[in-house]
Each structure stands twice: as C-alpha cells, then as structure tokens.
Design a protein around this nucleic acid. Structure first.
Length: 346
DNA sequence: TACCGCGACGGCAGCAATTG
DNA sequence: CAATTGCTGCCGTCGCGGTA
C-alpha cells in the first residue's frame, strides 16, 4: 500500500482510496482500492507501507480485506485524518454523528465538477460525449460555472477545447439539444439536491408536477408526500431557498427544458396545495362536504377522515366534534369556514 | 425494527474521433 | 494512416441514513 489519497465527491464527502503497488487479481491489474471511509481505515488499522490482502468484491470493485501485520515496517505511522479539503483547503467537518467527513465549500472545484458530471450523467440528463475530461476543461476555461451554462455553449467555444474538433463539437451540441426532452424526474434528479436520488426525484416529480411547484413548496407540504420525510423535505426547501440555485433553475427553464409533467397545465396550472392533507369537521354553511373536497383536490390537496400528525389543516364548521379536539391537541392549524374560503380562493 | 435506496467506488472492453 | 485519447457502459458492494 503506497499511499492513501482522498477524493472529494459532489456533495463534499471526502473518501479515502488506497493506492497500491499494481498487482494482478482475477485477470485485471489492481492499482487502487476503495477504503469506504476514514473510520473503516482506523478500525482495520491500515497504514501506508502495509502489505494488504485485497479481493474484488463481486468480481468487480477492488477492496482491502485485511493487513499483514508481520510485514509492517517498524517506522510506520498510524493513518492521519486530513484536516483540510485536499482540493480547496477548506477545513473539513463531521456533521453530528455522521461517519462522513465533508468539505463544506459548495464552490470547491471538486464539488462543482462533480455536480456537472452528475447532471450530464446517464441517469440524469444523459448527455452523450460530455465526460469528465470535457467537463474539466469547460470549468477550467471558465466557459461553464454551473449546469445553467451548458445550454448556451457555442460551437466556437467547444472547438476551442483540446481534442475537440468540428465533428465532436457537432455531436456534443446535438446531445445537449436532445437532453432538453428529458423527463421532469430526471431534471430534478440532475439538480443534485442532497438526499434526492432517483426514487425521491420521481416521487417529487409525480406529486408536484412542475419545477415551479417544487420550488414554491414549503417543507411541510413536501413532507406530506408519501415517503418524503423531514430530511428530504428540508433539503429540497433549502435548495430552493438558495438564490444561486434558483438562478441555475431559471437558466435551465430559459433553455426550454421540459419543467412540467404533461397534463399539469390542462388539469390545473397551479397546485398550491399539492400534498396538503385536510380534515373536515362539523357542518359547513357555504359548501357541501363534496364541494369542499372538490375544491381542495382541484388545488392538489387531499382530504382524509382522521386527524394525525400528518394533517396540515383541520377545517372546523358548526358543531365540530372530536376531530377538532384532536387537531388542537396535535397543534394542527384549525381553520374556520371563512379562513378556509380565503385559502382556496387565493 | 426492517427495509430500501443513496452515494460512492475501479477496471476494462469497445468504439469514435482527434492528432501528428 | 497509425497512435493516442476520451467516453460509454458494464459489473457489485459497503455503510449508512431515511422512512414507515
């Protein structure tokens, strides 16, 4: 084991990687192996200079299984956790009880590059010909600062790069153009919001129906979506609470990327109550129950029969009963019929 | 508590395009 | 024209966090 290096991912997580004396294992030459995280290294007491046993997990990913302590050089030192980001020197932090150590500088070049690579990646916008080398050059030359800049790249700018001729530039521009057709869930996934992987992105796309709705949604509204909990909800809300992120999203919209699910406009241009859960109690004067339900659902909300922590509003009419009591006990906002009327009219 | 899925990882074959 | 470079897509696992 010649060295332990640290790589910085797009979310700032710093992971240790073992640099090995190249060795043939199961038909391929292994020169690096993942070490997962710093605690893992500490637990196994892996030191630079150690002789290590490696195998390929599932015949693919090389990993360090154990060390051969007898071959340890007498002067070997325990492994040291880096204090600063290997790329931008920002002090690294460990948040709460997390195992991961992070670079918190969102403008760290490694993070910026990671985010662009994620956006153009196969499961997100799937832009062919946009690999790490191209990304690195575009960032280096200042032609791209974030994913909002991708759609205004010109033929001239691309051909100015190393190893990028007419043909490659044409192909890349065509791929970029084609990527505008990607579905909403891929766009959301591509934004690289923390904790939002493919599944969460799909849930958010299906429930919010447009980037605008997602952007406007409160953390509470998001949390009312099935399988979206407080962590993801807050992560999304704080992403859109950031001015720069909103500017990137605006640029993507200007590039004419599809930012809505089909039908969103036809059925309801806006769904300000998307995901909101209402409980009706007591008799309403101006609406029948059915009318009230129809209004709520037209705006994207849902009506359930029982009050729980997930309930966003209790609408209390005349002679409200136990559901009003439970709503008050759980500190759910209680609306009078008038307040409810204002809410749905707006 | 059980389950799912996020995020991150390396090597290689095969191919296309660029460069010299 | 040959050599070089870069990209894609594939393979599977770990450790853990998030949700129900």
């Amino acid at each position: 084991l010649n060295d332990i290096i640290f790589q910085v991912g797009r979310t700032g997580v710093v992971t240790p990687v073992a640099v090995l004396e190249p060795v043939l294992v199961a038909g391929s030459t292994i020169s690096r192996a993942t070490l997962h995280n710093e605690e893992e290294v500490r637990r196994k007491d892996i030191r630079i200079g150690d002789t290590v046993n490696i195998e390929k997990g599932g015949d693919v990913i090389p990993k360090v299984v154990s060390i051969n302590i007898d071959n340890r050089p007498a002067d070997s030192m325990p492994f040291e956790t880096p204090r600063n980001c290997p790329v931008c020197e920002t002090p690294l932090v460990r948040i709460g009880e997390e195992v991961a150590i992070r670079c918190t500088n969102t403008t760290c070049p490694a993070q910026v590059q990671g985010r662009v690579e994620h956006f153009v990646g196969r499961n997100a916008m799937d832009i062919e010909g946009f690999g790490p080398a191209v990304t690195e050059q575009l960032l280096q030359e200042g032609l791209v600062r974030n994913v909002g800049d991708l759609y205004t790249l010109t033929h001239e700018q691309l051909t100015s790069l190393e190893r990028m001729g007419e043909r490659s530039a044409d192909n890349l521009l065509r791929s970029i153009e084609e990527s505008k057709q990607r579905s909403l869930d891929r766009v959301i996934f591509g934004l690289g919001i923390q904790h939002v992987g493919e599944r969460a992105a799909r849930l958010l796309a299906e429930n919010m129906r447009s980037i605008e709705a997602l952007k406007g949604a409160s953390s509470e509204q998001l949390e009312s979506i099935q399988e979206i909990g407080p962590t993801i909800a807050q992560s999304v809300a704080s992403f859109f609470g950031n001015q720069q992120n909103c500017e990137v999203v605006d640029k993507l919209r200007e590039a004419c990327i599809a930012m809505e699910l089909p039908g969103a406009e036809a059925s309801a241009p806006e769904q300000p109550m998307a995901g909101q859960i209402f409980v009706l109690t007591g008799a309403l004067e101006r609406f029948t129950r059915d009318e009230a339900v129809a209004h709520i659902e037209a705006l994207g909300g849902r009506v359930t029969s029982n009050v729980s922590k997930k309930t966003n509003y209790v609408v209390a009419g005349e002679n409200a009963g136990s559901k009003l009591k439970k709503g008050l006990a759980l500190e759910v906002p209680v609306l009078t019929e008038d307040e409810f009327g204002k809410l749905i009219n707006k």
